[in-house]
Design a protein around this nucleic acid. Structure first.
Lengths: 170, 170
DNA sequence: CAATGATGTTAATCCAGATTAACTTCCTTT
DNA sequence: AAAGGAAGTTAATCTGGATTAACATCATTG
């Protein structure tokens, strides 16, 4: 009996909702999802954009089984492989190599998050965008521009301005 | 034969230097350390402040054994328990529970980093400072104010202004 | 105890990026 | 093909926080 279940979601559907407990770790089989937080002013802040072969969840909610700070929503019709918290923990005990696999993924994600924090402080908006573009060219084409602006921590208007500057430049 | 070696560092000494490969994972037995990046303009950006019982390293450099993006430097005389990359990986194979222990630590660190990214985008400087103060009161007292400003992504002058505002307010 | 360096403050000026708002495409759906 | 909504653009104005610079305080160390 497999502990992993593939589940289909339509564009717009939520895999995790802010306030709920995140019960599953999610592996994207197909499609595209955004992880975001809604602040007190109702503004959306995207922390992650996930496409095929990415893991996504509200890890903080998942590991402590506490209410989520983040939403995970499908930007396209998507298929997601899901595994429940208890099942994954049990599998880690049974299969140490699986736990190793996850440890390594999370280490990389953490190292990337630290670099992102520094970049957000040290690079101006235009350079953050250029860096994003070269790092995730696949994502840029699939996701609306205003969401990329949110991921990069700037307004859609300002990203639009940057882009028209870049076109002028060359 | 223990694979973990305690090592003493004087205030100002570097445990990791930007450009070198980070060979050890470091557990702070006593003292206080900062992890920071120097950008092209020579500006320092602090990503982490570590005191007793914290782990610190340049994880990206450590896991890939590539040149470090970060420096780790002692802010006080410190004692650090160090374990070499190969030794720790070997221990993980021998002792699955140790690997579990590390996986969980890193999951928490990653979840915290994601929240920090959102806070940096959604909260103004004053609220980031207030949040920091309640989250890490111990650290605030041990570390010079201009380093806290750097950790929070603002200038020392602005943090000074915020603090004098807060004093006026009550 | 001078002197030097590290830390912190205050105030004036400046600017990257936010906000606002009006307009344009381009899809969808009917 | 009209109508409504999502996405993107442009330009004017505004502001949180940076920059600059002068000064204050306090530890160290010679």
């Amino acid at each position: 009996m497999s502990k992993v279940k593939a589940r289909k979601f339509l564009k717009g559907q939520f895999v995790v909702q802010q306030g709920d407990v995140c019960k599953t770790e999610n592996f994207v089989l197909s499609g595209c999802l955004k992880t975001f937080h809604i602040d007190h002013e109702g503004q959306e802040h995207i922390v992650m954009l996930a496409i095929e072969n990415w893991w996504t969840s509200d890890l903080g909610s998942y590991i402590n089984q506490t209410p989520a700070d983040f939403n995970v929503q499908c930007l396209e019709n998507s298929e997601v492989a899901q595994i429940l918290y208890e099942d994954l923990e049990r599998l880690f005990v049974e299969i140490p190599k699986l736990e190793r696999f996850f440890r390594i993924i999370i280490q990389k994600a953490f190292a990337a998050a630290q670099k992102r924090i520094v970049n957000n402080f040290s690079l101006p908006a235009k350079e953050r965008y250029l860096k994003f573009r070269e790092q995730y060219p696949q994502i840029e084409q699939r996701v609306p521009q205003y969401m990329i602006a949110s991921y990069l921590g700037m307004t859609k208007e300002f990203l639009s301005k940057i882009r028209s500057q870049l076109i002028e430049e060359q």
